[in-house]
């Protein structure tokens, strides 16, 4: 069972590595969205510092949303997905592997770049570890929830907008606790409660989302 998991993980990571351009585009999108905000709201440092956690989190969330369609689209188009579903391995297992590969190739780069962008918005340096931790705990939840939406909208016309409509309301709690953790750290009340809730959310999503996603994939390819 572990070998299946590792095989799918390795394959998806290799594919992501061969198509590095897609990953870089996601990263560039994240950077540009964050850089747009000072133009929109003005470059006053105090204001930027106040909105920095929210801006970084919303940008990370949008970057994740825009790359979600890549999760299953190629496998669906070339028939790999059907072969995987036909195999005797439990679907929730390789779905988890695919989501993990997706997170490693799109979520992790965003997490790595975020502290640099935070300095651009003049975020306190003391809050940087909390920012990284909250993104590292929160973006996998976005990937897991998004995978269910991506599986349901697979191969539909206008699937991208539909996917956004489906998953954005579900992303709201993650956004609240993620951005809230950084704000709590900045205001001095401590981010432990927010980070624990994010961790709990990740554990819950990890337990439930792969099953829902596997069921959705079966319906889609039926």
């Amino acid at each position: 069972m572990l070998s299946t998991f590792l095989a799918v993980l390795r394959r998806d990571l290799l594919l992501a590595w061969r198509g590095r351009a897609d990953v870089l585009v996601t990263l560039a999108f994240f950077v540009i969205v964050v850089c747009l905000f000072p133009f929109g709201v003005g470059a006053e440092p105090n204001q930027l510092r106040a909105i920095a956690p929210g801006v970084l989190w919303v940008a990370a969330l949008l970057a994740c949303l825009l790359s979600l369609h890549r999760l299953f689209a190629q496998d669906y188009a070339d028939g790999t997905l059907e072969q995987l579903l036909l195999s005797s391995e439990p679907a929730a297992l390789w779905v988890t592997a695919k989501v993990l590969a997706f997170w490693l190739s799109t979520g992790l780069p965003v997490v790595a770049v975020a502290p640099g962008l935070a300095l651009l918005l003049d975020l306190e340096q003391g809050a940087l570890p909390v920012l990284v931790l909250s993104l590292a705990l929160g973006t996998p939840i976005l990937g897991l929830l998004g995978a269910v939406g991506a599986a349901l909208t697979l191969g539909l016309r206008g699937g991208g907008m539909l996917l956004a409509l489906l998953v954005l309301p579900l992303f709201v709690p993650v956004l609240i606790f993620g951005a809230g953790a950084v704000e709590a750290e900045m205001s001095g009340s401590g981010a432990a409660a927010h980070l624990l809730l994010l961790g709990g959310g990740l554990a819950g999503a990890l337990a439930l989302a792969p099953w829902a996603c596997a069921a959705a994939l079966r319906i889609t390819t039926d």
Binding site: L166, P173, A212, A215
Partner: peptide, 19 residues
């Protein structure tokens, strides 16, 4: 597909409300 998204939404409604 609609049934799955309705169920996912129903699980999330209390989480959304409390968050």
């Amino acid at each position: 597909a609609g049934a799955i998204i309705a169920l996912v939404g129903a699980v999330n409604v209390p989480i959304i409300y409390f968050s």
